[in-house]
Computed example of a mutant assay.
Amino acid sequence: MTAKQGFARPQLGLTLVEILIGLALLSIVFGFAAPSAVSIIDKHRITAQVNYMSSVLQYTRHHAVDQHIIAALCPSDDLRTCNVNDWNLPKMLFADHNHNGMRDQNEALIHATPKMPSGVFMRGPNKIVRFYEDGTIGTPTTILICPQRAQQTLNRALFISLQGRVRPSQDTNQDEIHERGNKQALVCV
């Protein structure tokens, strides 16, 4: 039998209308999914930085106790001098034997971190974080880790007690916003 006798050939493509309907449906689905995906990515970036910075602080404390030295951690753009005004810079861990806030020739670089990734910023103290031989720190310190886009539910902090213990911020009142120890919401300015 031939096509002329009533059998149609199977369709091998899509019509323009079918393609346009498919594209419209896809754009609607991605329009709803994209904002939540961005929020999930931001949350994972913040969590990764909190975990990484917590481990760096704990390593600094451990190194001070283990080596019986004063271990200093600070941001630095040249891995020689500290620049406590910008905690987004790479951070260096070194033994600051003479307390001058810079890594001298006889002070080895113990560890260096990369700069903060895009989408995340860090605010720290206006001083070097120093852990003493017994693991203590001179002043309680807070380090804020926040998203570049203002989203208060993603603001996080690391608190360092006088004893040198590092503790992450928590949402104690279940409102999805982490608080300081005094129950005030974390604010990244």
Rank of each mutant, 00 (worst) to 15 (best):
F32R: 05
Y132F: 14
M102Q: 13
I40V: 13
E133V: 09
L57M: 12
E107D: 02
L73S: 05
K4A: 12
R103I: 13
S76N: 04
A185V: 06
G31H: 01
F94R: 03
T113S: 13
A185I: 07
S118P: 11
E133P: 09
M1Y: 06
I160Q: 03
A108F: 05
P90N: 06
T136L: 07
W87F: 04
Q151E: 10
T172M: 02
D77R: 09
L16W: 10
H178E: 03
A112Y: 01
A8S: 11
L73I: 13
P90Q: 13
R123P: 00
P35L: 04
M116R: 14
V187F: 05
Q174N: 06
R45V: 08
L12Q: 13
G13W: 11
I128F: 00
P125L: 11
C188F: 12
N83K: 11
H111A: 04
H178P: 08
L26E: 12
A72C: 07
N106Q: 10
A24H: 02
P140M: 07
I177N: 09
T47W: 08
F32E: 08
M1E: 12
H111T: 02
M116I: 15
Q174L: 12
A64R: 00
R130N: 11
V187G: 05
V120A: 09
R130C: 15
I41A: 13
I177F: 07
L154F: 04
I145H: 09
A185H: 09
L25H: 01
Q174Y: 10
A24G: 14
P117E: 11
D77W: 04
K91L: 07
V50D: 08
M122K: 13
M92W: 02
N51H: 09
Q174V: 05
A108H: 03
L12S: 15
M92Y: 02
P10Y: 09
K183N: 14
T139E: 08
P147M: 12
N51R: 04
M116D: 06
T60Y: 00
G124Q: 14
T15M: 06
Y132R: 08
A34E: 02
H62I: 05
V38P: 08
G138E: 14
P114Q: 12
A95T: 04
I137K: 01
D175L: 12
Q11A: 14
S36G: 13
C74R: 10
T15W: 05
I40Q: 15
A108Q: 12
F7G: 09
I145K: 05
I41H: 14
N126L: 02
H68G: 07
N173V: 01
G101N: 10
D78C: 04
V56C: 09
R61N: 09
I41K: 11
T60P: 00
L73P: 06
I69D: 00
T142G: 00
Q67G: 00
R123Y: 14
G164H: 08
C74F: 07
F30N: 03
S36K: 15
P147R: 10
